[in-house]
Amino acid sequence: MGLIVRTIARTTIPLIGIFGAYIVSHGHLTPGGGFQGGATIAGAGILFLIAFGLGEMKKHYSKSLYSALEGIGGLAFLGVAMLGIGTAFFYNTLWHSGPVLNGKPGTLLSAGFLPIMNLAVGLKVFTGLVSALAAIALWRRWKE
């Protein structure tokens, strides 16, 4: 892409990333959440891929790292779902009796395990979408 596009991308990628992180972390307070925020951050990744091209993307993208991070996102979700397994699967023990995240409803540190799950889903969606797009971009050329 041209110079203007690259310069704009340099300024907007951090903004999109921050906005996506905001959506993920405020999932229990405002509209949005893990999927929406994760997809927004993945949008920043795709903008990077399009503006700077495949060569630059290859330098910054590692398949095993993204694939492991996606697994970690899933594991974190499963892990917090199991915290209250003594009562039931998905029992929100952090909200009912947990040491943290049981603040006054409406504040950032409320809602029990929901913020952790939003972060986990956000991580999984971001890494998954970026990996999928990178894999498609790296696919063999049009003709063989």
Partner: peptide
């Protein structure tokens, strides 16, 4: 839980 854990941890 067990197959979900297995599938999520497989990439790691």
């Amino acid at each position: 839980i067990v197959p979900l854990f297995g599938a999520f941890s497989m990439p790691i």
